[in-house]
Write a protein that binds this DNA or RNA. Structure first.
Lengths: 346, 346
DNA sequence: CTGAAAGCGCTTACAG
DNA sequence: CTGAAAGCGCTTACAG
């Protein structure tokens, strides 16, 4: 490997061969050189061959900036996520990236910390044509709509897709998530089931609460089941669990809004001297890597995060190519995974 | 919020106002309009004001593709990481992104899965001028050098910076990491200390092994201390620990190559009926979020991942601006964090 | 302080 | 199948 980058001299892009160079080496016009490289079927085989050899000989690489300016598209996608530290996102990002890369698109990543100012500053990236489309996770669009931000770019919303009813979305059925969890626990014989919920401004949390109540009515005949506000983090789950136990409540099972909270809840139970699953059964949601590795391994509702990411990117690519929008609202299936954190009540 | 994007009609970029439009609204030439917007100090105050008003009136946004073509830089950075599922990377990515965004640069993210083909396919992004510079994590450059890939773009290597001695790097002192861990354990009175190491092709793993041996010699006077091959994952740590115990070895303390392996090792100990820290003390490296939340909270060598990412991006920005390269090899400090997974031997 | 002009490197109707 | 020409939307020496 030769590292040709010279740190003393300025990095000159003009040293690089252009299509002009290729064309003259091959003895054709730049138009023909362009065709030979980008639309080979428009050109005689002989010409094609000559141009390709010339391009290779001088190490030609197309200048995407020029191509993009001319074609009026950047072949780049902007992905906005609120918080990359969340264990939930990395696999979605991987799916997005691999799907984009497979189609020859680049992926720009923007982190918003759920802040409208960051979100709207990224819309500049779109409006300045650095990206052709937007994939936005977890309700960013909602916030922007509330803040009155205007935008006009092909967009797919992923999860937390509340307000933008009109935009294409990829999500899961959060009521079904709760139904699966409660049906499992009720099937084991539990009747005192509590729900540690997400933060109150989250649409996902709301749907899971509604699903929990509906499922409790259906399977246990209990309309006003116990719901505690918690959050999506380990700490939030632990604190909610400790509060719950300290308040004198003693459910035999707890359905937690996600795995992080469920793992926190397990820790909270332990601190109060309770064993899992002997004293309390715990169910999470997400099926993060840690769920299987925890002690005990966590029963949870699996989300296919790769599929969520891949669907979203495919949908956006379809939008950009103006294919029909048949699947304008994809619901990715979920599935209960039974492990050792749940057991019949004693 | 108005969603002006019309799904039936093609998305026409030509609907958008150009500098030409702004110029004629303001009654000046495009040259002056450009200056008023990009280099306001070159223009009379009156003119500046008129141009800005005109730009605002028609909702003008600069076309970055055109600007980039003209300026011969994309104001975009490519970041290549092997594996986003690793808990270690997200905070580095956040630091990279925030630092880049703070300088008005976009960040493109490429995932390589440690595969040379993916890595070199991303070099195309550089050579086609979609990005001005490269930040590469964890030895990708090494592999490419071995594979004979050529490239010539401003680059900063982060961690696992073996072969490219000549390129700017940001890393930690992996020997010091081992020294801190062993000194702590030896200070508690441990003499039978084992090391669960990383995979053998990793330079980081090699340095930590070397540091471990040196520290064992220094603090315990034992030159051939026990080293077991493990890996960077929870499972690898657990399996290594189980192997170690099953082989009849019974160290009183174990220094693990990272936190994931350390948490796995704790689980392995538990499965063999051993308590942490009463029977065995465990030290990790990284200080991932989980380290503090685990049971018991893990003693570990903290890496400032945010600083690693931010330094790398700052260094690359410096390179691109041809500032001097004084700090061409930054070593980010590490620090021992003592929690409850270590105690004196019984 | 301002404008006319050249040019960044491509792609693509339009003729031939 | 190929070439000459226009143009994507900017920025920046160069004159004035």
């Amino acid at each position: 490997m030769t590292v040709r980058y010279d740190r003393k001299a300025p990095f000159k892009s003009s040293d690089r061969p252009t299509l002009n160079e290729v064309a003259s080496r091959a003895g054709v016009s730049v138009a023909t050189a362009s065709r030979a490289l980008s639309n080979p079927e428009l050109v005689a085989e002989r010409t094609r061959h000559n141009v390709r050899k010339a391009a290779e000989a001088c190490g030609y690489r197309v200048n995407f900036l020029a191509r993009s300016l001319r074609r009026e598209r950047s072949d780049s996608i902007l992905v906005l996520i609120p918080d990359i530290d969340n264990f939930f996102y990395p696999e979605i990002i991987r799916a997005l990236e691999e799907t984009a890369h497979g189609e020859g698109l680049s992926m720009m990543l923007g982190l918003t910390s759920n802040r409208v100012d960051r979100e709207s500053s990224y819309l500049d990236v779109l409006s300045s044509r650095r990206a052709d489309g937007l994939i936005i996770l977890d309700g960013g669009l909602d916030r922007m709509m509330l803040a009155g931000v205007e935008f006009d770019v092909p967009t797919v919303q992923v999860l937390e897709c509340a307000a933008g009813k009109d935009l294409p979305t990829v999500r899961i059925d959060d009521r079904l998530v709760a139904e699966l969890a409660v049906a499992h626990l009720a099937g084991l014989g539990h009747r005192h089931i509590a729900h540690i919920a997400g933060s109150s401004d989250s649409q996902v949390a709301g749907e899971r609460i509604a699903g929990f109540r509906a499922a409790m009515l259906k399977h246990v005949g209990q309309p006003d089941a116990l719901v505690v506000r918690g959050g999506y983090s380990h700490d939030a789950g632990r604190e909610a669990m400790e509060c719950l136990l300290d308040s004198g409540e003693r459910p035999t099972a707890v359905f937690c809004v996600n795995d992080a909270a469920a793992l926190g809840a397990i820790q909270g139970c332990r601190r109060r001297g309770l064993r899992i699953p002997e004293d309390i059964s715990i169910v999470g949601v997400d099926d993060i890597e840690l769920a299987a590795a925890s002690d005990p391994p966590l029963t949870t509702v699996h989300q296919n995060r790769y599929e969520i990411g891949a669907s979203a990117m495919r949908m956006l690519i379809g939008l950009l190519q103006r294919r029909q929008l048949a699947d304008t609202d994809v619901v990715v299936p979920v599935e209960l995974v039974v492990r050792q954190s749940t057991a019949p009540p004693r």
